[in-house]
Simulated assay, not measured.
Amino acid sequence: MEKKFIELAKQRRTIYNLGRNVKLSEDELTDLIKENIKNGPSSFNNQTTRAVILFGDSHEKLWDIVIDRLKQEVPDEAAFAKTAAKINSFKAAFGTILFYTETKTVKEFEDNFPLYAANFQDWSEQSQGNAQYAVWTSLAENGIGANLQHYNPLIDDEVRAAFNIPATWRLRGEMDFGSIEAPAGDKDYMADDDRFMVFK
Rank of each mutant, 00 (worst) to 15 (best):
2 E>R: 03
5 F>P: 03
9 A>M: 12
10 K>V: 01
10 K>P: 09
13 R>K: 13
13 R>N: 01
16 Y>P: 10
18 L>N: 01
18 L>D: 09
19 G>Q: 11
20 R>H: 12
21 N>M: 08
24 L>G: 01
26 E>N: 02
27 D>K: 13
27 D>I: 09
28 E>K: 14
28 E>P: 05
29 L>W: 07
30 T>R: 07
35 E>I: 01
38 K>R: 15
38 K>M: 13
40 G>F: 03
40 G>C: 15
41 P>N: 10
41 P>E: 03
43 S>F: 07
45 N>Y: 06
47 Q>S: 03
50 R>C: 01
51 A>D: 00
51 A>Y: 09
55 F>V: 07
56 G>C: 08
57 D>A: 14
57 D>Y: 06
60 E>L: 05
62 L>I: 10
63 W>R: 06
64 D>S: 13
65 I>E: 09
65 I>F: 06
65 I>R: 09
66 V>D: 10
66 V>W: 11
67 I>L: 03
68 D>P: 08
73 E>R: 12
77 E>K: 14
77 E>L: 08
77 E>R: 08
79 A>Q: 15
80 F>Y: 15
84 A>Q: 07
85 A>E: 02
85 A>F: 02
87 I>H: 04
89 S>L: 11
90 F>P: 09
90 F>D: 03
95 G>E: 12
96 T>A: 11
97 I>L: 06
101 T>Y: 09
101 T>G: 01
102 E>F: 00
103 T>I: 14
106 V>P: 12
107 K>C: 07
107 K>F: 10
107 K>M: 12
124 S>T: 12
126 Q>I: 12
126 Q>F: 13
127 S>E: 14
127 S>I: 05
129 G>A: 14
130 N>H: 14
132 Q>D: 11
132 Q>K: 08
134 A>F: 11
135 V>F: 07
135 V>I: 06
136 W>T: 00
138 S>G: 02
139 L>P: 00
140 A>P: 08
141 E>Y: 04
143 G>E: 04
144 I>H: 09
144 I>R: 11
148 L>R: 02
151 Y>C: 04
152 N>S: 06
152 N>K: 01
154 L>I: 13
155 I>R: 04
157 D>P: 00
159 V>M: 10
159 V>R: 01
160 R>T: 15
162 A>G: 10
165 I>S: 14
166 P>H: 07
167 A>M: 10
168 T>C: 06
168 T>Q: 11
169 W>C: 05
169 W>H: 08
170 R>D: 14
175 M>A: 07
177 F>N: 10
181 E>M: 11
184 A>M: 08
184 A>W: 05
185 G>F: 00
186 D>L: 01
186 D>F: 03
187 K>P: 02
189 Y>D: 10
190 M>F: 10
192 D>V: 15
192 D>K: 15
192 D>E: 15
194 D>E: 14
194 D>L: 12
195 R>T: 14
196 F>N: 10
200 K>S: 04
